[in-house]
Amino acid sequence: MTRDDMLRAILRDKMAVLGILIFAVFIFAAIFGSGLAPYDPQEMTRSASGSVAALEPPSLAHPFGTTNLGRDVFSQVLLGARTALTIGFIAAVVGVTIATILGLLAGYFGGWVDNLVTRAVEFSYTIPAEPLAVIILAVLGPSFTTVILAISVLAWRQPTRVVRNQVLTLRNRQFLKAARVSGASHTRILVQHIFPLTLPVSLVFFPVEFGSAIIAESVISFLGFGDPTSTSWGVILRRSFQEGALQSAWWWTFSAGTAITLATAALYFSVRPLEEVVNPRLRSRR
C-alpha cells in the first residue's frame, strides 16, 4: 500500500473522516484551550448574588456545570485536552519509535537479536501493566516526564512484534539481496530499503498507541499517580469521584469521561480503513 492508497482508503471511509474531524477539534482545544477557557480552571466562580457557584448544573455561564468548589468544569476539560494530547502524543512517538527500531533489528538480523527482542516483548506482557505504571511513578515520583515514561513502557510492545513480522516477510526478497551484493551496508539496507516499507505499519500503530496512551494517562491520574501540576481528565474524574459527584453532580463526572472516550475513539476510527496494513490477510478479500 502506498501513501496515496492509504490516504484514499481513509477518505473513502466516512467514520474515519468523522474521526479525523473530531480529533481536529481536540487538537484545536489543546492548542488554543487556555485562551478559549472562560475561567481559570482553579477559580472559585461566584453567582450573581455573590455566593460561590458550587455544584451548579450545566447552564449558559457554565456549559459543563461547576465543581464543589465552584470551579468551571468546561474550562478544566478544555485545558485537560492539552495534557492528554501532549502526553499521549509523546508516549506514542517514543513507543512506536522504539518499536520500529527493535522490530527492524530483530527481523533483519534474526538469530540472537531476534530472540532477545522476542523474549523482551514476551516478558513485558507478564508484568501487569497498570500496577507497573503506578510503581514506576512511585519510584520516580510523579511529573510530566515520568508519566510519559511510565506510559511509553506500555506503548512499544505490540508494534515491535508487528514491525518485526513485517521485516521477516521482506528479508529474503530479491532487491535486498541485490543491494547486499552490490555492497550496501546493513545500516543502508535497513534505513534505505526496509524502513520505508515498514513505515506504513508504524504509522497505523501511531494513532492506536496514541489513543491507548490517553486512556492510560487518565487511569494513572485517576489513581492519584499523575503529574500533580497539570489539569488532566483523569484528575477531574478523581476529584469528582472523591467528592461523591455521582450522587450530586453527574455533569462533573460525565464531561471528562466523554472527552476521553471521544478523543480515543476518534483516533481508533481514523485508521480503521488501514486495518489491512496491519492484518495483511484481509487484503485481497476486500
Binding site: G211, L237, T253, T261, L262, T264, Y268
Partner: peptide, 12 residues
C-alpha cells in the same frame, strides 16, 4: 467506539 471508553469511567 466502546474500545475508547475508559473502563473505570464506564464503571462510574
Amino acid at each position: 467506539f466502546f474500545r475508547g471508553v475508559p473502563t473505570f469511567w464506564a464503571g462510574m
